Amino acid sequence: MITVEHLSKTYGDVRAVDDITFSCRPGAVTGFLGPNGAGKSTTMRVIAGLTPATAGSTAVAGVRYHDIPNPGTQVGVLLDASAQHVGRTGREILALGATTMGLPMSRVEEMLELVSLTPSEAKRRVGDYSLGMRQRLGIAHALLGDPKILILDEPANGLDPAGIHWMRSLLRTYADRGGTILLSSHLLHEVQIIADEIIVIGNGRIVAQGTKAELLQSADTFVQAADASALANALTSAGIASTPSRDGLTTEASPEQVGKAAAAAGVALIELRPADGAGLEEMFLQLTTQSQRDVITEGDQA
């Protein structure tokens, strides 16, 4: 479990984190969302013992990170996949980690296989790795000590779609086995798929937190039919406004209202569900409007 209580961090006159409190429970993936500069990375660095707090406290499994004996076997941390020795090979970096943690070298081979770094890739220097390969190596290092807690900052950066799907499955399995995961990511759709709980931070303060269901309960509805025109007419006739979205329509009406309108008009639906991804993106933008670097106003060109 990860707990953060009344945490604040100030750099000079800048208050990067402002009195935030939250917890991450075992068996769950907690998505940590916010615009650039919102305080996500600073918070994670404080939890991992890399940055001292100005006020408040953080604990991992009930104790401060610095007080954990052999912390790599208890907490896996990936905050910057590029912060690896570029002159060493991937296998060397994992071997050094295993030696430091007192682990058998067989663990290195297990992790290389787990993250799909081939023997030839493991022999290459990290300076020649792509960002996606560095992410895989960073995840391997975080998991090397078989920790019960993971703290991951943008782990999907540089991964291709197949890599993102792999990472999603890996983390889901980890959480389902009782692990605790704090995950920061700008990929809102991926967070929507994998997260059990969500924390949204803006200007150093938490603006929303709760389960995914709680935060998205007012999300829009996505609907798709074989006859898109007939569906649009059915919704309009029922007084339901809608907008085109991907291969269907999105509306603020509930799935039940949309289903009844379509049934009354004899329109067969292909898909009817909460517009999860769009709902999370819309919620995120609404909650963090004041802390967005790029604000699009009416009349701005795309």
Rank of each mutant, 00 (worst) to 15 (best):
S106V: 12
N233S: 15
T73K: 12
P71D: 07
K260Q: 15
L143H: 01
G72Y: 08
Q74N: 09
F222C: 01
N157T: 11
G248R: 03
T221R: 02
G37T: 00
K123N: 04
A61Y: 04
D220F: 14
A238C: 12
R64Y: 05
T289A: 15
A142Y: 00
I2A: 01
Q135I: 07
A238E: 11
Q74D: 04
R168T: 15
G72L: 06
P52R: 06
Q135W: 05
A302Y: 15
R15Y: 00
P26W: 08
E113K: 08
G239F: 05
P71K: 05
E190K: 13
S116E: 14
A213F: 04
G145E: 05
G62S: 15
A213C: 10
L143V: 07
G34W: 06
R124A: 11
P155C: 03
G90Y: 07
G27I: 13
E298W: 06
P26D: 05
L285N: 03
S57R: 13
A95Q: 10
M101E: 12
A98N: 06
G76I: 03
A59Y: 01
E271S: 05
G145T: 13
F284T: 14
R125S: 03
A264G: 15
T21W: 06
H165D: 10
F32E: 10
F32Y: 14
